[in-house]
Simulated scan of single mutants.
Amino acid sequence: MPTALVTGASRGIGRAIARRFAADGYDVAVNYRSSEAAALEVVDSIEDETDGAAIAVQADIGDDDAVEACVETTVDAFGSLDHVVNNAGINQHRYTPDLSPDDFRRVMNVNVAGTFAVTKAALPHLEESTVAECPSVINLSSRLAHAGADYEPHYASSKVGIIGLTKSHALEFGPTIRVNAIAPGYIETDMTDATTSEEEKEQKRQEVIPVGRLGKPEDIGQAAAYLRDASFVTGETLNVNGGQRMQ
């Protein structure tokens, strides 16, 4: 079976991507940082509902040594690595006066440097992949990379960096490996539930999002599956936002 590593896959968007890949016939490594029970639940659901295998792999994506071990564990378990989804990331809702340089660096380290580290560690294995549609890397950016965010400038900046990294790696790795990004809009996850009131959600549905609803994690899983298989697409950022921001 083809194989995939999905970082930050114990919940939300990462969980949906891991489950979508498994449903499509992939063996999946479910990376998590601290939510072991949730990651094991994802693994159990994959093994119960599909013919694929799954493993939970603990690693803080901000730790280079842990990243190396995560990739090697994946390859040791499955024998190959064909696709990487860099979903792991952290965020804090803070305005600049309340944002310390250390907080800024931590978000950049996990979101951008971590994405780089996972891709670099996976590169030799992706180069050896024999999947017909070409191995790929899919990076998770955000609508805030385009719009900015006064309440989380470090997070928005990191997501801009991911788009730049995506384009650079697409140029560097082609034609052997394709590299694309997804920029989700408002997606209903634990993170948005914690920071967005029901009134704000309803306002977005009615006034901001043309399709009239917030996104679901499964919408991003569908987008990731498309980019995984789209053999003539590389260096692109796919905006999945219900029409909130049109380019």
Rank of each mutant, 00 (worst) to 15 (best):
A4N: 07
G8C: 02
G8K: 08
A9D: 06
A9F: 09
A9V: 09
S10V: 00
R11F: 01
R20Q: 08
A23E: 12
A29I: 09
A37Y: 04
V43K: 14
V43F: 03
E47V: 13
G52M: 11
A53W: 13
A54S: 14
V57A: 11
G62R: 10
D64Q: 12
D65E: 14
A66G: 10
V67F: 01
A69H: 07
V71L: 09
E72F: 07
E72M: 08
V75D: 08
D76M: 06
A77C: 04
F78M: 06
G79P: 02
L81I: 11
L81R: 09
V84A: 04
N86Y: 00
N87I: 09
Y95R: 14
P97Y: 10
P101W: 03
D102Q: 13
R106K: 12
V107D: 03
V110D: 05
N111H: 08
T115Y: 11
T115P: 00
K120N: 13
A121I: 04
A122V: 05
A122P: 14
P124V: 00
P124L: 03
H125C: 03
H125W: 11
L126I: 10
T130P: 11
E133W: 15
C134K: 15
P135Q: 12
S136V: 02
N139H: 08
L140V: 04
S142R: 12
A149R: 15
D150R: 15
D150N: 14
Y151S: 14
H154E: 06
S158T: 09
K159L: 01
G161D: 04
I163R: 15
I163K: 06
K167T: 08
S168N: 07
S168M: 00
F173S: 00
G174V: 04
P175N: 01
A181R: 13
I182F: 08
A183L: 03
T189R: 10
T189W: 06
E199L: 03
K201L: 05
E202G: 03
R205P: 12
L214Y: 05
G221P: 15
Y226W: 14
A230F: 04
A230V: 00
N241G: 01
